[in-house]
Design a protein around this nucleic acid. Sequence first.
DNA 1: CCAAAAGTGTTCTCCATACACCCATGC
DNA 2: GCATGGGTGTATGGAGAACACTTTTGG
Lengths: 229, 229
Amino acid sequence: MPYAYDYPRAALTVDCVVFGLDEDDLKVVLIQRDLEPFAGAWALPGGFVHVDESLEDAARRELQEEAGLSKVFLEQLYTFGDVRRDPRERIVTVAYYALVNIRDHRVQAATDARNAAWFPVTDTPTLAFDHDNILHAALERLKGKVRYRPIGFELLPTKFTLSQLQRLYETILERPLDKRNFRRKALAMGFLEETDEIEQDVAHRAARLYRFNEKKYRRFVKQGFLFEL
Amino acid sequence: MPYAYDYPRAALTVDCVVFGLDEDDLKVVLIQRDLEPFAGAWALPGGFVHVDESLEDAARRELQEEAGLSKVFLEQLYTFGDVRRDPRERIVTVAYYALVNIRDHRVQAATDARNAAWFPVTDTPTLAFDHDNILHAALERLKGKVRYRPIGFELLPTKFTLSQLQRLYETILERPLDKRNFRRKALAMGFLEETDEIEQDVAHRAARLYRFNEKKYRRFVKQGFLFEL
DNA sequence: CCAAAAGTGTTCTCCATACACCCATGC
DNA sequence: GCATGGGTGTATGGAGAACACTTTTGG
């Protein structure tokens, strides 16, 4: 079959901004590069898109290969295509962001033995390529999205306290929230489910654990809704 | 220089969803294809990304070449990368959407003599490739974005009446708005500027013309804001 | 008994909404 | 004078924001 486009082509990659919550810190997965360009520098996990896999498949494969992560929340962020963003040749990258809860997903430097680690988003080294831009865009997206879609739950363990949830929102939005107002509104949404368990091994009164009920959430969305905290 | 990626590569295109307002109809530019695949079918304007131009540059060049449009509001929408979205070979497309006011921007079937025309968004033919998906995504984006960024002004002539503005919002949001509440809120935003002109040649009382003041808008944004109509 | 965080209601203010009539103009 | 849209104010309800003390538990 003839090519539809017989001229030099850009190469295509995917890069992933993987967010996780560690105690009350928002963290991101970075990979230390072992090859030029930017050998030794930290970068977002990512790699070339195979010609026979979709963009999202490529992103999931790279997450698996480079960080040992699977079955995570993943959403397309933006496509970065400046001509000189890679010093080698023209490379366009489709950026994704992922949300994982660190408990369930231990990050491992995987198959290709490069170093993978969690960094606090507020304290990352200068990244390779334009990855600082990508990370910044992902943070902005997270901040915007969290206000009208309950994606925050992806970052928490299955069962969590309302204080954990509140601290998560405060971390992402970078501002304090009022405890009573927060709890009232969070519960009023109607898709938080009280469990009969409480947290363990804390040196103070133990808080009740809640869980996110996705069915209730979907019903809620269908009826037309607005999600604000 | 060696290639960073010596394997078969996807081709890369841009496609543009160009919105315009014609009277009170929201319309979109479509191009009739003269080549296979989908010869004769309507499609979004777009084409291959050159290896030495950025994605946005490619989108602007295609708009110029295929529809004679320049200097329009243009924003990246989403990147569509399903393996089989083009029957010829693997082609990934970065979709953009553009807003133009039809008065200032006459659409012409340009250099390559293909047929270009405006279609009401509510009444488009079945499009080539996955362009129906792309159009649908663009409409959703427009609906969402118009609520917190005043992009609607891009669709109107420089001077417009408040009723025109209201009808625009009603069209995009697909619901009626209250006239008094709309006017109060629109003016309260503080970046609409009353001119001393009124509309001409209407068979009823002539409405005052307003203009969008971008400086005031920017000041408004800086102070932290929420834009809702 | 002290430290630490959990849990709980009320008030006020502001904004979204609902609603109806007179005005200016062209024909 | 009539048809057509332009232009205007008020009352009500609901939601967001501000605010402080008591309870429980472990050490």
